[in-house]
Design a protein around this nucleic acid. Structure first.
Lengths: 119, 119
DNA sequence: CAGTATCCCTCCAGATACTG
DNA sequence: CAGTATCTGGAGGGATACTG
């Protein structure tokens, strides 16, 4: 998908950090996961438990199916959620946070605390 | 600046959250501050102390003056850094984190911890 | 030195329509 | 139901040249 590629290009290759590389790389990775336009809204839904495609689409009312798919794929590729398809007719698909995804809660909480304090 | 407006539009108005509004609004605000393409690289420079425009431009080697200006303005508008101009010839301008900006450190640390654990 | 001012162009987001 | 396919506008960002 183009999103992944473009996000990786967000900081052009000729930037050479002077401090240990893993610092900003890891921050960049975290931003890559939650920084997308819809990512944290989807994550927020899933913190409330497993959800299906249609539920997500309804709860995040202005999202298009394309954007939702893109977001879900991106989150899945990053291992923060899991997609499960059941061979019913019609098909049933569920999205659930992985432990890695659940663990994002601490990060988001800090963001919330910061904003609560300063905004 | 168009950036500010566009960022505020990132979540279209017709999305109506079902849980307390301040939760995702605050997360959104935090993301608005650090989520920009260059934001956290600039912030990272400033965590190391006050810097001048030219220093920032040199240290973040691939950034254009336009993008650097945009990023600095955006951060200034959000109150995380302060711009100080000294009437020397030629002009001297310094950028320093505000307490609000310094306080972002906790957030970024959590992001780093998450990535260190899972990536 | 620390920016503006333009131009240009890529490329993603959203809308819409369609389908296994 | 849970997505793809396709088209599109317009913002975002780089390059370059210029300036108080």
């Amino acid at each position: 998908m183009s999103w992944t590629e473009s996000k990786q290009n967000r900081h052009p290759g000729n930037y050479v950090p002077k401090q240990p590389l893993h610092i900003e790389c890891s921050i960049e990775k975290a931003l890559d996961v939650i920084g997308g336009k819809w990512s944290f809204l989807v994550l927020r839904e899933l913190f409330g438990g497993t959800k299906r495609f249609g539920e997500l689409q309804r709860n995040i009312s202005s999202i298009s199916p394309k954007s939702l798919t893109d977001t879900l794929r991106h989150l899945e590729e990053n291992g923060v959620l899991e997609r499960t398809a059941y061979p019913t007719v019609p098909v049933t698909v569920e999205y659930t946070l992985t432990p890695k995804g659940e663990d994002l809660h601490r990060m988001l909480k800090e963001m919330k605390l910061w904003a609560a304090k300063w905004c």
